Simulated assay, not measured.
Amino acid sequence: MRTRLRVLHLQGRTYRWTARIGYTVVDDDIRRCIQVRVRAGGKTGCVLMAHLISNSPPGPWGICTDSTHPTPRDMHTLIEQALAQGWDPDTMVGGFTLRSGTSGTLSAIEVHRGS
Score class of each variant (00 low, 15 high):
1 M>C: 05
3 T>Y: 08
8 L>W: 00
11 Q>R: 08
14 T>L: 13
14 T>D: 14
16 R>L: 00
16 R>G: 00
19 A>F: 02
21 I>H: 09
22 G>R: 03
24 T>A: 15
26 V>N: 07
28 D>W: 14
29 D>G: 08
32 R>N: 07
34 I>W: 01
36 V>R: 00
36 V>Q: 04
36 V>I: 06
40 A>S: 12
40 A>P: 01
41 G>D: 04
43 K>G: 15
44 T>Y: 10
46 C>P: 00
49 M>C: 08
50 A>W: 02
51 H>D: 15
53 I>K: 02
54 S>M: 04
55 N>C: 15
56 S>I: 12
58 P>L: 00
58 P>S: 04
62 G>N: 09
64 C>N: 00
65 T>S: 09
66 D>M: 06
67 S>T: 14
68 T>H: 11
69 H>L: 11
72 P>W: 02
74 D>Y: 04
75 M>V: 10
76 H>A: 08
77 T>H: 14
81 Q>V: 07
82 A>P: 03
85 Q>N: 10
88 D>N: 14
89 P>R: 01
91 T>Y: 15
92 M>L: 15
94 G>N: 04
95 G>C: 06
99 R>S: 14
100 S>H: 13
100 S>W: 13
100 S>L: 08
100 S>M: 09
102 T>F: 13
102 T>E: 10
103 S>R: 05
103 S>T: 12
106 L>R: 10
108 A>R: 13
108 A>Y: 15
110 E>V: 07
110 E>R: 11
